[in-house]
């Protein structure tokens, strides 16, 4: 892929969107610089898709501003859109058309001439590893291939800013790796990328920075290390019991507290102050009548930071809006 420096950015200022009494996005402000990949991390229902939809001008915010490459969405929405690439969460393709034809439609609708669109389509198909399936109808492609083509359609016109809404949902590891490489290459070419996901591993691997949102609000933002630091950097121990110990069984250990509310009685996540407390906790559990099945000790990560910052787990059960 050609490397073209693109000086662009995504800016959101005080975005707010509500549906009736329910506030989906509340005073959300952030920015993404050119060549930067920023993760938008939050549980289902946190307001990720609403935020991306406002950035993509698909829905209008109740208040706040959106700027893409310096273009205000309220002033020149069509100009803004031409600078934008959008990879929706659902696969947005024409099933009866071939992979090439899908790409060609979106390339030409973004203003590429027929000849340049053809060359760009071949190049993009090559980039996402679908060159040999160019003429196959979309409905014949695997789920991973469709995801890659979905990404290709969003980037075929070389946008200044690319909005990706969970582009790896349901994708096999091979396709996921291909998508990561493609995104990284595009960012290296200068595009500002906002990457929405609830997979903290993807953010940890892909993103230069991350935005943690919950309940429509921005909880925290920064690099992965910064966010983990915000979470407290305490080790976490998860114990699974066949028979849970009596309540208050770890009260005697200083600094140990429940890391997250237990979803089931037989499993508990505890935040430790140091690693020596691991053996002490196992002994206390045994003394309290608990029969442990397994245990695991983790270094702190984004998930821990999210739990520390919001009080609940990243993978919520609420419905995405």
């Amino acid at each position: 892929m050609d490397v073209v420096r693109i000086c662009s950015s995504i800016e959101a200022a005080h975005l707010r969107k509500s549906y009736g009494a329910r506030v989906a996005v509340d005073d959300l402000s952030f920015s993404v610089k050119a060549g930067e990949v920023v993760g938008l991390l939050g549980p289902n229902g946190a307001g990720k898709t609403t935020t991306l939809s406002m950035l993509a001008t698909l829905i209008a915010p109740d208040s706040g501003e959106v700027r893409i490459a310096g273009i205000d969405s309220r002033v020149a929405p069509d100009d803004l859109r031409r600078k934008l690439g959008f990879v929706p969460q659902s696969i947005a393709l024409y099933p009866p058309l071939s992979a090439f034809q899908n790409l060609e439609v979106f390339a030409q609708i973004h203003g590429l001439t027929r000849r340049s669109a053809e060359a760009r389509c071949i190049e993009t198909l090559e980039a996402v590893g679908l060159r040999d399936r160019a003429d196959d109808p979309v409905w014949t492609l695997s789920g991973g291939m469709k995801r890659r083509l979905n990404l290709a359609c969003g980037m075929v016109h070389r946008p200044a800013a690319l909005l990706l809404d969970e582009p790896t949902v349901g994708v096999d590891p091979q396709s996921r790796e291909s998508i990561f490489l493609t995104i990284r290459a595009l960012a290296d070419a200068g595009a500002a990328m906002l990457y929405s996901t609830h997979y903290m591993e993807e953010v940890e691997r892909m993103c230069d920075r991350a935005l943690l949102i919950d309940g429509g609000k921005l909880i925290a933002q920064g690099t992965v290390a910064e966010l983990i630091e915000l979470g407290g950097r305490h080790p976490r121990m998860e114990i699974t019991f066949a028979k849970p110990p009596r309540p208050g069984w770890y009260d005697g250990l200083p600094g140990v507290k429940e890391a997250a509310p237990a979803s089931i009685k037989t499993k508990v996540a505890l935040e430790l102050t140091n690693l020596r407390q691991v053996s002490e906790l196992l002994e206390l559990a045994h003394n309290a009548g608990g029969q442990q099945v397994e245990f695991a000790v983790h270094s702190p990560n984004l998930s821990d930071a999210f739990i520390a910052l919001t009080g609940h787990a990243l993978r919520g059960a609420t419905t995405e809006i």
Binding site: A56, T57, L58, D78, D79, L80, R81, R82, L84, F86, P88, S90, I91, A92, L93, Y94, P95, F106, I109, H110, G111, C153, G154, H157
Partner: peptide, 14 residues
């Protein structure tokens, strides 16, 4: 439903 309409809409095409 396919999402192509949104994608076309985001393209800046009137």
């Amino acid at each position: 439903d396919w999402g192509t309409l949104a994608r076309l809409r985001v393209s800046g095409a009137p």
